[in-house]
Design a protein around this nucleic acid. Structure first.
Length: 354
DNA sequence: GAGTCGTGGGG
DNA sequence: TCCCCAAGACT
C-alpha cells in the first residue's frame, strides 16, 4: 500500500532529520500560533530571530494584546508582509477580550481569527491540540504532487483540493501532529523546489515524478507575477533637529509603517522637476539640500521601487504653522529610531550614519 | 479567481 | 541580472 509506505517513511525520516526548533518544544497554543504566523511565506532561518524576539518581549498573549501597535510593528520590522503583524495584534486582543485568553481548539473556530487561514488553523489545531487536521502548505503541495505525479496547475483551486484530499487520507489518527511536521520538514529540507535530493530519497522507488522524469516540472504553476515600477523621492526635511514623517495608510505597501515626506513620480525625475510641497516652495530661500542619495532599487514581489533621498535642512527658523504638511508630523532622531519603518528607509538611515 | 501584500536567498 | 519562491491570508 503506497500510502502506508509514505506515512511510515516520512515519520522515520522526520525522527532522524528534524531540526531542533524552539516552537517544537512546547504545546503552548500562543507560542505555536506566533511561530505559524511568522513562518507564513517565510523561511525558518529568516523567521527564527523574530520568534525569539516576540516570545521574549511578549511571553503571553496578554502581553501582546496590551502592547501598542507601533511597538509590535517595530518588532516585526524587516520581516515583511506587515498585515501579519497587524492581524497578530488584532488576534491577540480578540483572544484576550472575547476568549478569556485561550485559543480555540477547533479548526473551525481558529479559522475565524484574523490572520488565521486554512493552513494556520490546521497547524494550530494539530500541533497544539493534537487534532487530526492535515496542513496544506507549499511543502505539502510539492511533496504530494511529486509522489503522486500530479501535473495539473497548482494555481487552480481544484488542484489544491485534490492534494488536500490526499493529505486528509494520509494523515494518521495517531500523532497527526508528527505527520504534519514530517511532511513539511521533508519538503523544506529534502524535496525542495529546485535540485531536490532525489539520489538518496527514501521514496525513489515509488515517486511518480521521479519515475517519469518530471521532478523538475512538478509542481506546475501557471501564474506569473507582473511587476510594475514606481519612483519614490523622499524628502528628509530637517527643521530644528526634527523631521517630518507620516504613517502610511491603507491600500498600499507598508501600511502602518512610517516614512519621510514622499513625492511619488511616474518616472525618474531630477529634484528641480519635483512638485514640492507648498511649505518648501514658498520658503525656498530658507533651506538647502545637504545630501542627495544614490538611487536605491528596492524589490518587492509585485513592484520595483526606484528611490532617492534628499536631505533638506532649514537654515533659518520659520514659523511651522505657515507650512501645510498634511498628515506629516515632526519627530526627533531618537523617536524615529523607535518608529516602525520599511527596510528601504532603514537601509538608507543605516548607510547614512556610517 | 485574480490581485496584492516584503524580504532575503539561491540558481 | 533576473526569476523563483518561502510553514498564506485578505480583498
Amino acid at each position: 500500500m503506497k500510502s502506508d509506505t509514505i506515512v511510515n517513511g516520512l515519520l522515520i525520516w522526520y525522527d532522524k532529520h528534524k531540526r531542533d526548533l524552539p516552537w517544537r518544544k512546547t504545546l503552548d497554543p500562543y507560542k505555536i500560533w506566533i511561530s505559524e504566523i511568522i513562518l507564513q511565506q517565510t523561511r525558518v532561518d529568516q523567521g527564527l530571530p523574530y520568534y525569539t524576539k516576540f516570545i521574549d518581549k511578549y511571553p503571553t498573549v496578554h502581553d501582546l494584546a496590551s502592547a501598542p501597535i507601533d511597538e509590535v510593528l517595530r518588532l516585526w520590522q524587516g520581516l515583511g508582509y506587515y498585515s501579519r503583524a497587524r492581524n497578530l495584534h488584532r488576534c491577540a486582543k480578540i483572544v484576550v477580550e472575547n476568549l478569556d485568553g485561550n485559543f480555540p481548539a477547533e479548526r473551525s473556530s481558529l479559522l475565524k481569527l484574523p490572520g488565521v487561514g486554512p493552513y494556520t488553523s490546521a497547524a494550530i489545531a494539530s500541533l497544539a491540540f493534537g487534532k487530526r487536521e492535515a496542513v496544506v502548505d507549499g511543502n505539502v503541495i510539492r511533496v504530494i504532487a511529486r509522489l503522486y505525479g500530479i501535473k495539473e496547475d497548482i494555481s487552480e483551486q481544484k488542484t489544491i483540493n485534490g492534494i488536500r484530499a490526499i493529505a486528509d487520507e494520509l494523515i494518521p489518527s495517531k500523532r497527526p501532529d508528527l505527520f504534519n511536521q514530517a511532511i513539511m520538514e521533508f519538503g523544506a529540507l529534502f524535496c525542495t523546489p529546485n535540485s531536490p535530493t532525489c539520489d538518496s530519497c527514501i521514496f525513489m522507488d515509488i515517486c511518480d515524478a521521479r519515475s517519469s522524469s518530471m521532478v523538475a516540472s512538478i509542481p506546475f504553476k501557471s501564474k506569473k507575477v507582473k511587476k510594475r515600477s514606481r519612483f519614490f523621492n523622499y524628502l528628509i526635511i530637517n527643521i530644528q533637529e526634527k523631521y517630518y514623517l507620516r504613517k502610511r495608510g491603507e491600500k498600499d505597501i507598508w501600511q502602518g509603517l512610517f516614512e519621510f515626506y514622499l513625492l511619488e513620480t511616474q518616472s525618474d525625475l531630477p529634484f528641480d522637476q519635483l512638485d514640492l510641497p507648498i511649505g518648501l516652495s514658498r520658503n525656498s530661500r530658507f533651506w538647502k539640500i545637504t545630501e542627495e542619495s544614490k538611487t536605491y532599487k528596492h524589490l518587492l514581489t509585485h513592484q520595483t521601487i526606484f528611490c532617492k533621498f534628499y536631505e533638506i535642512k532649514f537654515t533659518q527658523e520659520i514659523g511651522l504653522d505657515m507650512m501645510n504638511w498634511e498628515e506629516y508630523s515632526l519627530y526627533s532622531e531618537e523617536e524615529i529610531e523607535l518608529l516602525p519603518k520599511s527596510i528601504l528607509i532603514d537601509r538608507y538611515l543605516g548607510e547614512k550614519i556610517i
